[in-house]
Write a protein that binds this DNA or RNA. Structure first.
Length: 574
RNA sequence: GCGCCCUUAGCUCAGUUGGAUAGAGCAACGGUUUUCUAAACCGUGGGUCGGUGGUUCGAAUCCAUCAGGGCGCGCCA
């Protein structure tokens, strides 16, 4: 039940009726009329701009129109008070009966409270993490991983269909160098040949030693005498070993994917040829040259004629190459095939979660989806900005060469899954995020995760004291009467569907974190009222009245739903 | 040079398809515990929403322009 939607409908109906009676003139569409959350200081439940929207066309001041609408709305049996405020807002206060209904409505189906049932539902494919299978995940992968996971949870909660996918980049040069590195580590183990640490193309990390000895142990039939001979098999094994580690890392963060799609499979199934054909038919490919990169530096670049995709047609900086110098496919070509594959599987909303270092890539791939899908599918690239690590009060720079980068394993072991997830989601993905180890580990009110969890723990504690269970159904046989202070918290509860709506429409899960913090804050305030006023306590003489029992239950429902979306636990005791 | 993101209180940030006197937390200062969990609460101070121009009933929000910061600009993935 979204009270803002309910009242928007009521208001629209009322003014339409008034139009029929000749009392008001209405514009062609009523889309700009809104029912919003009023600023706190007005102490009311709903606020509408309807008078301001209608003022011009009726040639009357917003305040006069507001008077007219106020009279019309006063007939509504659930409104207790309407005040007209300066520019022309109508501020509406609902009566106790309405809040009683509201609460009953939530309890009739608590797990679905917040879901936007009237909204159009989509079939989403969300691709996230997709880190190269060349080693364990590190902190740099975390933000996008958590963002993708939580976005999925959010969309699933909101009744969309969601498939979570990991694209395995097991084709191309980096994988070749990775396999070569494994090969050389294996030879180091078997033949005591020193690993060439000075080769910048190779992967020097120590984790390769472990993978290598696993490979030796489990593949006694393989001979490591000639790289060319063993390369193909070794690539498969190495990638699969890497993926094992990556999946383990993801699990530590509470993340799972539905599919792992292999790039080399896409290429080997001739899906690239298929997409090339498709693009050709659309006249979006041509033979031409592109200019050398602006920042040329160490890149060895030769201008030559090659097959290009006309991404400039869609606003990209330059057209993009599909084939490399040796005529093998570029990353973009196989990614084009992969995205074509996504479209052919019938998804209508594609989401890619990318790190900020891939911003430059988004234009060409969204262009491509636009070109291929005939407007059937839409690709949204969600770019998450950098995480600034802070240790001992100082920025911590990771360097792969020094091998001092922090892995997901280390991170979770040090600060824990829940705190990591919550803090990573605490900011809009558009802004850089400070991740201060000391602060994230801190178990105090300064750490927002515990602040929210504590709210749930307090509620659980009351139920525990009363020998009641939060999951048990509550029978409501009387008219509930809430106190003003309780209604203030219920107001926040009433905003939950709106929070879900905006978060999922804009793909901004940080709004949930913010909301939960605010709700927890309202609750803690109420709790503390019991310090001075015994009547405000939940448990009085070892029992609790129905209103308070319901009140606590509803808060716990929303906190639990929200934390479930975030993938963070709600302990009953802290 | 070009593209994307950012600029809001001392610090870190919210801010709803344009709405009301712009909000939190931290830090600072002062208060609250014989009490359902003090991992909590209350109070005080703190602002030219980076600058300028425009759009309109109304701009932190939209447009233009300038300045500052981050990321990127491959026949790497």
């Amino acid at each position: 039940m979204n009270i803002f939607e309910v009242y928007l409908e009521i208001i629209c109906k009322v003014i339409k009726d008034a139009e029929k009676e000749g009392k008001l003139i209405l514009p062609d569409n009523l889309n700009s009329i809104t029912v919003e959350i009023p600023p706190k200081k007005f102490n009311c439940d709903l606020s509408t701009n309807v008078a301001m929207v209608l003022s011009k066309i009726n040639n009357k001041s917003p305040l006069d129109i507001a008077e007219v609408i106020k009279k019309l709305l006063n007939k509504d049996s659930h409104i207790s008070e309407i005040t007209i405020v300066k520019p022309g807002f109508l501020n509406i206060k609902l009566n106790n009966n309405y809040w009683a209904l509201f609460v009953k409505n939530i309890l009739s189906n608590p797990n679905e409270y917040g879901v936007n049932l009237n909204e159009k539902k989509y079939n989403y494919l969300i691709e996230f993490v997709s880190a190269n299978p060349t080693g364990p995940l590190h902190v740099g992968h975390c933000r996008g991983a958590i963002l993708g996971d939580v976005l999925s949870n959010l969309l699933i909660f909101n009744k969309h269909k969601v498939t979570k996918e990991y694209y395995v980049n097991d084709y191309g040069n980096q994988i070749l160098f990775f396999t070569k590195s494994i090969y050389l580590r294996i030879r180091e183990i078997l033949f005591k040949e020193p690993f060439p640490l000075d080769n910048p193309d190779l992967y020097p990390g120590n984790y390769l030693k472990e993978i290598s000895s696993n490979i030796i142990d489990n593949n006694s039939e393989l001979k490591f005498e000639n790289f060319e001979k063993v390369s193909e098999t070794l690539t498969k094994i190495s990638v699969s070993e890497s993926l094992k580690i990556i999946k383990k890392n993801l699990k530590k963060m509470g993340i799972t994917h539905d599919n792992f799609v292999s790039e080399s499979t896409i290429v080997n199934n001739d899906e690239v040829d298929k997409v090339v054909k498709k693009l050709n038919e659309k006249n979006l490919l041509y033979k031409g040259t592109i200019s050398a990169p602006e920042r040329k530096q160490s890149i060895d670049y030769k201008t030559r004629e090659q097959t290009l995709f006309k991404s400039t047609k869609f606003g990209d900086d330059k057209d993009r190459a599909l084939q490399k110098f040796d005529n093998s496919w570029t990353y973009f070509a196989s990614d084009a095939a992969y995205h074509n594959n996504k479209i052919e599987r019938g998804f209508d909303q594609l989401i890619n979660i990318l790190g900020s270092d891939h911003t430059g890539y988004t234009k060409r791939i969204t262009s491509l989806v636009e070109a291929l899908s005939n407007n059937k599918a839409k690709l949204i690239c969600k770019v998450s900005q950098l995480v600034k690590l802070i240790k001992n009060g100082k920025p911590f720079k990771m360097s792969k060469r020094k091998g001092d980068y922090i892995t997901v394993e280390d991170l979770i072991a040090e600060v824990g899954k829940d705190a990591t997830r919550f803090i990573m989601l605490n900011r809009s993905s558009d802004v850089e995020l400070d991740f201060d180890f000391e602060k994230v580990k801190d178990k105090s009110k300064d750490n927002p995760i515990y602040y929210v969890q504590y709210c749930y723990a307090r509620i659980s504690s009351v139920y525990r004291k009363l020998n009641k269970n939060l999951k048990d159904e509550i029978k409501i046989d009387t008219n509930l009467k809430f106190e003003d202070q309780e209604i203030k918290v219920l107001r926040k509860i009433s905003e939950w569907p709106k929070c879900i709506e905006i978060s999922s429409k804009r793909l901004e899960p940080h709004r949930i974190t913010t909301y939960l913090y605010e709700l927890a804050s309202e609750f803690h305030f109420y709790w503390n009222l019991g310090k001075n006023d015994e009547g405000k306590r939940f448990i009085i003489n070892n029992s609790i009245n129905l209103e308070k029992l319901v009140f606590l239950n509803i808060i716990s429902v929303v906190i639990k739903s929200g934390m479930n979306i975030l993938g963070v636990e709600t302990p009953e005791e802290m």
